[in-house]
């Protein structure tokens, strides 16, 4: 089962790695969230690593997508951790958020 715009790979145990591609359409939010959570539930995942290394900038729209995904993951007891956030993206994101996001962040896996 492939989800358009991203690669979702099981990297061992209950850990999943999500790598978005350039074709990811974050406007198609609800359908994406549904497919991803379905896949995570099926595999009884416990952690979802979201790789942000290819993303130079995070705008409010993209943040909205990350936030929704993280909250959806939480409902099925999956912790979302964003990894490899670029300095420019962190800078842009810190400009418009007022409190820390729902998801966790880490330098790398």
């Amino acid at each position: 089962m492939t989800i358009p715009g991203l690669h979702l790979t099981q990297i061992g145990g209950g850990d999943f790695l999500l790598e978005p591609t350039k074709n990811l359409n974050v406007r198609d939010l609800s359908r994406l969230v549904e497919s991803i959570t379905a896949r995570l539930m099926q595999a009884r995942a416990s952690r979802l690593y979201y790789d942000l290394s290819g993303l130079a900038l995070i705008d409010p729209l993209y943040y909205g997508w990350l936030d929704t995904l993280a909250r959806a993951a939480k409902t099925i007891n999956v912790k979302m951790i964003c990894i490899n956030m670029q300095p420019t993206a962190a800078f842009a994101l810190s400009k418009f958020i007022t409190k820390m996001p729902v998801f966790e962040t880490a330098l790398n896996i």
Partner: peptide
């Protein structure tokens, strides 16, 4: 506060 947030977002 912004600076602290940015650092935390990077995962530090």
């Amino acid at each position: 506060v912004q600076m602290v947030h940015a650092v935390q977002l990077m995962g530090s």
